[in-house]
């Protein structure tokens, strides 16, 4: 359920659009930032705000890869292995992080497509904050810095806390 502050925020977001249905994506980001994932209950609630059914919201949200429909920890680490990162060490970064955090429930490591950071490849995002020019070691250090609170993370959907 949205907190009171987020209920107010949700109403403001809906008002930005001529049709409430347009607010499904932004409200799903809001819910995911709040809860750390996009739960069925949240999608029910979004349906009420957007004048539609829960089934419709689920159908829409399941199309988009950024919405995590099961809990995935506090840190989503998205490592690019697309064609530029591919040839300058992206897969090695991914392998290191996948191995290191395989059984860490706080860190969800995923392989993603091009992040539009190819000029400084290889690249990754942690909760949608960019980190570029990586090596397997520096990437691991960055994730550790987030875990220890030395770096402050955005929400799981990239929103500011």
């Amino acid at each position: 359920m949205f907190t009171d502050a987020n209920k107010k925020r949700a109403t403001e977001i809906v008002a930005l659009y001529p049709k409430a249905h347009s607010a499904i994506l932004p409200l799903a980001h809001l819910a995911q930032d709040q809860d750390g994932w996009l739960s069925p209950e949240a999608m029910d609630e979004i349906a009420d705000y957007c004048d539609t059914t829960a089934a419709d919201v689920q159908g829409v949200c399941s199309f988009y890869t950024m919405y995590k429909r099961r809990p995935c920890g506090n840190l989503v680490v998205s490592v690019c292995t697309n064609v530029t990162c591919l040839v300058v060490g992206g897969p090695e970064v991914l392998e290191r992080l996948e191995h290191k955090y395989a059984s860490d429930h706080d860190v969800f490591v995923e392989e993603v497509e091009c992040l539009a950071a190819c000029g400084n490849a290889p690249s990754m995002q942690v909760n949608y904050e960019y980190h570029e020019h990586l090596t397997p070691e520096s990437a691991e250090q960055i994730v550790e810095d987030y875990k220890a609170g030395r770096l402050v993370a955005r929400g799981v959907s990239g929103g500011l806390a």
């Binding site: 930005l16 659009y17 049709k19 249905h21 347009s22 607010a23 499904i24 994506l25 932004p26 799903a28 980001h29 957007c50 539609t52 159908g59 829409v60 949200c61 199309f63 988009y64 890869t65 950024m66 919405y67 993603v112 497509e113 990239g158």
Partner: peptide, 29 residues
């Protein structure tokens, strides 16, 4: 004039203009 910033959610196809419009209407892109 009102300007609204709308974030997608990880679908390349939403760059195609009619898919983008679908997405902006709150549908699958």
């Amino acid at each position: 004039l009102e300007i609204v910033v709308h974030r997608g959610a990880g679908a390349y196809i939403c760059g195609e203009e009619s898919a983008l419009i679908e997405s902006l209407e709150g549908k699958r892109g």
